[in-house]
Design a protein around this nucleic acid. Structure first.
Lengths: 224, 224
DNA sequence: CAAACATTCAATCATGTGGTTGAATGTTTG
DNA sequence: CAAACATTCAACCACATGATTGAATGTTTG
């Protein structure tokens, strides 16, 4: 039936866009909030023209939308379901692509031992009061729910705001999930500054889904 | 950070596979259960060699797995999350691709009048015993699993066999999913014959994934 | 209204992809 | 062990894609 094929071809337009690591990286950044083209270009290391073209493809595929603000154009995810899409994709890749599992475990053992902390350990250490829980997600996501007592530093301001953390306390960082690399970066940055830091093995979605308590207010954000 | 890029390249391997309408169609069929290569080839209209190649790509990307049974090789979804992935993709496409909305409304005639029934409603009405659940999929798919108590009329014989249904009962039709067009056609045909008919808003894959009971025997098929 | 800036366009190239064909592989059956 | 069958492989073509360049478009600022 022609209709079904045409429909699948439309779905494939969206699928095609997910077939490029660069675009997935851009989507990762966009998951933090709207960004201008050249902000995305600098953060991803791509040329501006190339970034622009990728963004346009994603816009045509309906994954991303653009809005002009002054002389810049800000791109944002079309929908929060795009994050869901990526999370499901990550989960499938983790379960069925041996390369992904190997890469993660190699990366963890090769670069110092960033031994991840389990949710249970986090709870135990949190009760001792000697640990700083660090939420490395964009402020909007933090505001929409976070681990109780967690401090929020958005990935973009990580390096500048590390100084505001208590250097005497152990830090446990988390972000969106096991394959969200911000927590890796945060732990690396923290250790470079002399902190004792670990990352949570999972992320906030898993935390929430497991039924642990969630705090919604803007409680202890370090940034302004 | 090279790690991040390599990781995204791995995720992109999986994404690439979603960038072909033919493969998405094959995944649609696989969502019903395991199928042999040539069963998939005939149902999709592709050549056997071509089907085989698509299946192998999907297997390498970890979306699908193969198992030999006798002289045939049966492919199946690697994981039920693949259905989730496709469902999220469909939802995004429906919301953000004007073409999809247009195609659906143009081709599926007066959507308002075909008001879909939710799974919960179906269960409630089914318990009343006053409703006929109609499975509008090919017999093989019906045999591989269907909603308990559902009656099967294959799309090819729809018009001839409508007369065998009880005209006094409401009919709720379903097929493979929200974008499977057979249920729309069935509802239109039933209404043309004076039936009270609705379509299930989702389809059998979603039903199965939601954990509702599945019946496997050949229980009440109307056709011969 | 012209300069400065952010983004997009257009042309080009190397590479990757889907599809076809016919031969090759591997499993079961007689 | 050879025939029959299901699937895969290998070679090939037309076409799409990602990336690079330099010019063009459109918006704000002085």
């Amino acid at each position: 039936m022609a209709f079904k094929q045409e429909l699948n071809d439309q779905f494939a337009r969206m699928g095609k866009v997910l077939g490029s690591g660069r675009r997935l990286e851009l989507l990762d950044y966009l998951a933090q909030g709207a960004r201008s083209v050249d902000a995305l270009a600098t953060v991803s290391g791509l040329s501006v023209a190339n970034t622009s073209q990728h963004l346009q493809k994603m816009q045509q595929a309906g994954l991303v939308r653009a809005e002009r603000q002054g002389k810049q154009i800000f791109y944002a995810l079309a929908d929060d379901e795009v994050i869901t899409l990526m999370t499901v994709l990550h989960g499938l890749a983790e379960r069925h692509l041996a390369e992904v599992r190997e890469m993660v475990s190699m990366h963890l053992t090769a670069r110092d031992r960033l031994a991840p902390v389990s949710v249970e350990e986090l709870l135990a250490r949190a009760q001792s009061g000697l640990v700083t829980i660090l939420d490395v997600r964009p402020p909007e996501e933090y505001a929409a729910g976070h681990v109780p007592g967690a401090v929020n530093i958005s990935p973009a301001h990580l390096r500048e705001q590390i100084a505001q953390l208590d250097a005497g306390r152990e830090v446990i960082a988390y972000c969106r999930g096991p394959y969200c690399t911000f927590s890796f970066e945060a732990v690396a940055a923290l250790r470079a500054q002399g902190f004792t830091a670990h990352r949570l093995e999972s992320g906030f979605p898993e935390w929430k889904q497991a039924g642990y308590p969630v705090e919604y207010e803007h409680s202890e954000q370090v940034s302004r």
